[in-house]
Design a binder for these strands. Sequence first.
DNA 1: ATGCCGTGGAAACCACGA
Length: 276
Amino acid sequence: MKIATYNVNGVNGRLPVLLRWLEQSRPDVACLQELKAPEEKFPALAIQEAGYGAIWHGQKSWNGVAILMRGGKPRETARGLPGDPEDFHSRYIEAEINGIVIGCLYLPNGNPAPGPKFDYKLRWFDRLTLHAASMLAKKVPVVLAGDFNVMPTDLDVYKPESWVDDALFRPETRAAFHRLIAQGWTDALRILHPGEKIYTFWDYFRNAYARNAGLRIDHLLLSPQLRNRLVAAGVDRDVRGWEKTSDHAPTWITLRDEPVVGSVKLVEMPCGQITS
DNA sequence: ATGCCGTGGAAACCACGA
């Protein structure tokens, strides 16, 4: 099962690129962020013709998240994060697909920092972390996928020293990410590629993509139930080089199907032994 | 040090992004 996350930066302006990528990459699930389209302007028909059912949470001009499922329709389990009835940004949508809960998120940017936007980012992060804890407590397989607007470590920034005061890299932001991870989540890209420079975003200007001046800010986090099913993870980097492309590249994982023998679920351990 | 590019919406500029 292939699960991807892609900040499209405008789902209608990006539609040809999105459809080309779906056809080429063929994810089973695609989490989209920054739709920048109101509810009624989501291109559901074109996406359906590409073979994907979808749920989405739109908003005029900004934000907006969607979950696409190849050959079916996601079963929605939540839209919006609990904890702030005054928050109307479309930044979270969640669905159950093939026994896995998929949380698709677009964490606030938070710049300029310090300031009210940074405060909102940290509050939103706290709400996400609370919701994430409640999901772990259910002991079901969960993937949290999206644009977290955080570079977790120095390795995730082309030039860390110039980003230390930025809302995406400030100590408070990194600390919030590490508090979330410490609940028991696995950063899928990093666990399979330790020590490797991996970026998911390159600015449109300053020739950033050609210089590989990138950031790793799009992440897929796995609950403990999924850790041993992770087989591959990567970034569709070439998509960033296409015409009329987003400033983010699609980021993905593949999970092996849960091995089932009779009614007993088998879990493969890293050392090769099998436990039931 | 910087929104230098790009998107969307409203208004021929502005807000926002990372």
